[in-house]
Write a protein that binds this DNA or RNA. Sequence first.
DNA 1: CCATAAAAGTTGTAGGATGATTGGTACATA
DNA 2: TATGTACCAATCATCCTACAACTTTTATGG
Lengths: 229, 229
Amino acid sequence: MIQKINRLSLVEQVAEQMEQLIEQRQWKVGEKLPPEMELMEKFGVSRNTLREAIRALVHAGLLETRQGSGTLVRSTSVLGAALKRHVKKSTMLETLEVRFALEKQAAKMAAEHRTEEDLTKLEAIVSETKVASEKKDIDQFITSDIEFHKAIVQASGNQLLIDLYEHMTDLLYSFVHDFLAMQPSFQLEQGLHLNVLDAIQKQDQASAAMYVENDMEVLKDYISKMTEE
Amino acid sequence: MIQKINRLSLVEQVAEQMEQLIEQRQWKVGEKLPPEMELMEKFGVSRNTLREAIRALVHAGLLETRQGSGTLVRSTSVLGAALKRHVKKSTMLETLEVRFALEKQAAKMAAEHRTEEDLTKLEAIVSETKVASEKKDIDQFITSDIEFHKAIVQASGNQLLIDLYEHMTDLLYSFVHDFLAMQPSFQLEQGLHLNVLDAIQKQDQASAAMYVENDMEVLKDYISKMTEE
DNA sequence: CCATAAAAGTTGTAGGATGATTGGTACATA
DNA sequence: TATGTACCAATCATCCTACAACTTTTATGG
């Protein structure tokens, strides 16, 4: 078997290392990187080489440079940035449809594969949501709600699915926030949570998928009502 | 109205122009770009600036540089390249699961929204597949089969869904090719096609989704059999 | 204390020099 | 002819220095 020779350029080597530092959270989002001079010495490359690596990550959406100020971490994922640019051209509805397709599949798989750990986490989030609901703490309620959906997807065990879903959710965050804040009552949402959790506990794939689908219909109606006005 | 000054860096301006040239196919995939010297003059920037722009697109997967030879266009889509790197870390099964989640949603939406044009196209592909099957032209059969699946997704009308699906399909191309080539008989596949097409014609969303799901099960079984060996 | 100016720190852009790799050409040899 | 070698030209890779532009911090004068 002939293997292709892998001769990585210095720029690519530096970029790769920086990507890892970001992914491993050693360079945290929002944090400033050391100045170019320092990085040059640390990586042992010239300014040009270093700058080309930085520029590559800037273009990919991981970093952001500010002339005169510095370079900071903007995102931890290339896929997220690529999706973001793509999603900008799409409508909210299109994005939601894809997100729900992913969540529905995830719910089915979660019902099949969920571990005790997954269940514990889901239950914790549900009770958290309940508390927030009783306290009328809207922000906390919304945060918990989003966490619940993410937890379902995480229970699917499919990492690609998880990544895509989380990135799309992040992109839709402000929209979902507004939607939930506008809900007249929290009861509906809580009902959904209990139903889905129940189906996942019982490993009932069909029901899990169905409840998620019902949720989608509610959102779709909301959107069409909103666009009519 | 005061407008925020858009001070895009030279590098970003050059990168953006090059992306457009690629997207508009003025620079075609596989083609070599003019050498750096020439591009410097055309864009009116220094070598460093030009190289940073090129490097950004190289990292994004759109270009490829070969020392001593030149720079050539490698892909037309950022999303495709980002997915590709991500998918490398995922298993085939994970990728297929996501792809099917998208296709299932697409089938439902296609059943709802399909136009006469969509139906005509689907029918044409089905008969194309039939001819290939009778002629025992495996390559043509596989091509048609993939076209059929893509056409279903296209009939959904959701551009984000279409893009994601097509990129994932491209990534899985060799796998799908091998799978189909290994199928003992073509009848099964053709049955699926007719069933799905029928459901979409009748605008029966549930059936359309169901038939797609059946297809997924067949593939899953094949994979688990393959991984056991 | 505050406003302003100066200074220092940092990224942006330019231009030049050298090294490394590739592709092609000419030529000698068997 | 076929093959291998040496050489040359084109091209990208890397490094270096210098200066411009912008931001942040510090110093200064009232």
